[in-house]
Design a protein around this nucleic acid. Structure first.
Length: 271
DNA sequence: TATATTGTTACACC
DNA sequence: TGGTGTAACAATAT
């Protein structure tokens, strides 16, 4: 569930809380969470200091003093909670030298932690085929249109969620961006008019930025680094609102499933 | 118990 | 070939 706004929220809060701290002990409770032999992982991590916390797409990057970076993907239900209370879903605990700690919880256990050498981070992103950051200045309208044109036959919603074009947009925000743009999620990219592409471009930026202000969306499991829920769902116009009145025209919001994902939209406002 | 949830990937199909 | 869509997968709660 954590998409760009949720991961960005965690990143900002973590940076504030753990920068400068030394990891005394990494308590690995679920071996499959870390994609390394446990011994090697502990050796790399223990004794290292947190130099910085960053984000790339939906990945959290915790940079350590030993020239390595913890690359964390929370997938469906991952949480990183500073000084949180452990539960049966707590699979990894970083104990800092000052007795504070960072919990990595994951109810579905789909997430992962990889240790990547700092020098090799860019190779890693390239290998993972990660697209443009939608809130960075190099994400221009021209680049957006150009990237979209590589997927003329695909449905616009799937193109928005395609991490090899641009990163960070998942199901919640794809639905919201398309509602804000008045575009039906099943329209093909090739059928979009210049005006519509421009609207989508603007709304990617505005919806994501607004969602960061609201500290993300807590549809189910998501909490931020302080264990708090995000408030974006209060402002969602279509996501998870099947059967409820469209906030613009009152028509009932529809839910249609394609590509295994629920799409929410207003038939009247989006075409 | 069947189903829903998501990002990612393997694979079938034109 | 490469673009596209679908199914499968991870694990759990309800």
């Amino acid at each position: 569930m954590p998409e760009l706004p949720e991961v960005e929220t965690i990143k900002r809060q973590l940076a504030r809380r753990i920068k400068g701290k030394t990891i005394r002990d990494a308590e690995v409770r679920l071996v499959k969470l870390i994609r390394h032999p446990v011994k090697k992982f502990k050796k790399l991590v223990e004794g290292a200091k947190v130099v910085g916390v960053n984000r790339r797409g939906k990945l959290i990057l915790i940079e350590l003093s030993k020239g390595v970076v913890l690359v964390i993907h929370l997938k469906l239900s991952g949480q990183l909670v500073f000084n949180g209370k452990g539960s049966k879903h707590t699979h990894l605990i970083y104990h800092f030298a000052d007795k504070s700690k960072l919990l990595h919880n994951d109810l579905r256990k789909f997430g992962f932690v990889k240790v990547v050498e700092k020098d090799k981070l860019n190779d890693f992103f390239e290998k993972e085929k990660m697209g443009l950051e939608p809130l960075k200045s190099d994400f221009t309208f021209k680049r957006f249109r150009q990237l979209l044109s590589k997927r003329k036959k695909s449905k616009i919603k799937l193109a928005l969620m395609d991490q090899s074009l641009f990163v960070g947009i998942g199901n919640i925000y794809a639905n919201e961006i398309l509602f804000a743009s008045g575009v039906h999620p099943q329209r093909t990219v090739g059928s979009l008019m210049e005006k519509e592409i421009k609207k989508i471009y603007r709304n990617i930026k505005s919806v994501l930025t607004f969602a960061i202000k609201k500290k993300g969306a807590s549809d189910r499991d998501y909490v931020d680094a302080g264990g708090q829920k995000g408030s974006y769902m209060k402002f969602a116009k279509v996501y998870n609102r099947e059967g409820k009145p469209c906030l613009k025209c009152g028509t009932k919001i529809k839910r249609v499933k394609f590509s295994g994902r629920s799409s929410y939209f207003c038939e009247k406002c989006q075409n």
